[in-house]
Computed example of a mutant assay.
Amino acid sequence: MALDVVVHVDGGARGNPGPAAAAAVLSDASSGAVLDEASAYLGETTNNVAEYRGLLLGLERARALGATRVEVINDSELVAKQVNGEYKVKHPDMKALHAQAAEALAAFESWSIRSVPRAQNADADALVNQALDAAAL
Rank of each mutant, 00 (worst) to 15 (best):
A2F: 00
A2G: 01
D4W: 09
D4M: 11
D4C: 11
V5N: 08
H8R: 12
G11W: 06
G11N: 08
A13G: 06
A13D: 03
A13F: 04
R14I: 10
P19V: 00
A20D: 11
A21D: 07
A21P: 13
A23I: 05
V25W: 04
L26G: 09
S27I: 05
D28C: 13
D28P: 10
A29K: 12
A29F: 07
S31D: 10
G32T: 06
G32F: 05
A33P: 00
A33Q: 14
V34E: 15
V34H: 01
L35C: 09
L35E: 08
L35Y: 11
A38E: 14
A40Q: 15
T45E: 12
N47H: 06
V49L: 11
V49H: 03
A50M: 04
E51S: 08
E51K: 14
E51W: 03
E51I: 02
Y52W: 04
R53C: 12
R53P: 04
R53I: 00
R53V: 00
L55E: 07
L57M: 10
G58C: 05
L59A: 03
R61G: 04
A64S: 14
L65Q: 05
L65D: 07
A67I: 08
T68S: 15
R69P: 06
V70Q: 03
E71G: 13
V72A: 03
N74T: 15
S76F: 08
E77W: 01
E77Q: 15
A80H: 05
A80K: 08
Q82V: 07
Q82A: 07
V83T: 08
V83K: 06
V83H: 02
N84D: 12
N84C: 13
G85W: 02
E86D: 14
K90S: 14
K90Q: 13
H91P: 01
P92N: 11
P92I: 14
P92W: 12
D93F: 05
M94L: 15
L97S: 05
A99L: 14
A102D: 12
E103R: 13
E103M: 05
A106T: 01
A106E: 13
A106I: 07
F108N: 03
E109M: 00
S112G: 14
R114W: 00
R114K: 15
R114D: 00
S115Q: 07
P117C: 10
R118C: 02
A119W: 00
D123V: 02
D123E: 15
D125Y: 06
D125Q: 10
A126F: 04
Q130N: 06
Q130M: 13
A131T: 05
L132S: 11
L132Y: 04
A134S: 14
A136F: 02
